[in-house]
Design a protein around this nucleic acid. Structure first.
Lengths: 108, 108
DNA sequence: TACAATATGTCCTCCATCGGACATATCTCA
DNA sequence: TGAGATATGTCCGATGGAGGACATATTGTA
């Protein structure tokens, strides 16, 4: 039961807070859209449409959370995204909320 | 900056995962709709329409996460909601996801 | 006595988001 | 050589959810 709930919840959180999950992934190392798509699908068990992802990546760059750089990999062009200081701060804010939520739960 | 991000994120999380935040509140003690509304607004800084809340509470009861009992308080009727075992499990699943997300963050 | 607060409920419309389609190009392997 | 994987991009229509309106009743207070 709890396992079913967890799967369902991970999918909900991933969909609703997709930008944050993407920022968290790029925190590990710079990544391009296609790789992010595969990672999200593997880690969170969520089918991610590229029609959703690519516009989101562009908007994250516009907002200053990511910067991009085009790389050539055997003729194919990759747009590699790196997290910015601002992006880091956004993830840190998220993490501190998580910690607070857990603490409130434990105290009660 | 981080504080602005936190406010924004708490509001997003509250809106997107409102059902979970409600279950967490009823974990503390049984509550009725109006009280929940006031608590959510005070704790999370989110304006919550009762036209959103009451149907949500009914659906949480239908799904078996909450049970309700009508109480009279000086002529006014209150529909007091208590969390069920299933509701508890849902919150536990949520908490374990939070813990995992924080751990992944710390390891990196 | 009239207004604000307490308390719960439904319904409709609008807007934003998401999925799916359309579009293009290269590389690898059977 | 053809299919599947890699790689990125736009656009449109449907659907769902949220906000605001409609609805009602009691209590407390200025």
């Amino acid at each position: 039961m709890t396992e079913t709930f967890k799967k369902e919840l991970v999918q909900r959180i991933t969909r609703n807070l997709l930008d944050i999950q993407i920022l968290r992934l790029t925190q590990t190392k710079p990544m391009w859209g296609y790789k992010i798509k595969k990672q999200v699908e593997a880690l969170f068990n969520v089918k991610l449409r590229h029609g959703t992802l690519y516009p989101l990546l562009n908007s994250l760059e516009q907002k200053g959370f990511l910067t991009s750089e085009k790389q050539q990999k055997k003729g194919r062009t990759r747009k590699v995204y790196t997290i910015t200081r601002k992006g880091q701060q956004y993830v840190e804010a998220y993490n501190s909320i998580l910690k607070e939520q857990i603490q409130k739960h434990d105290i009660r």
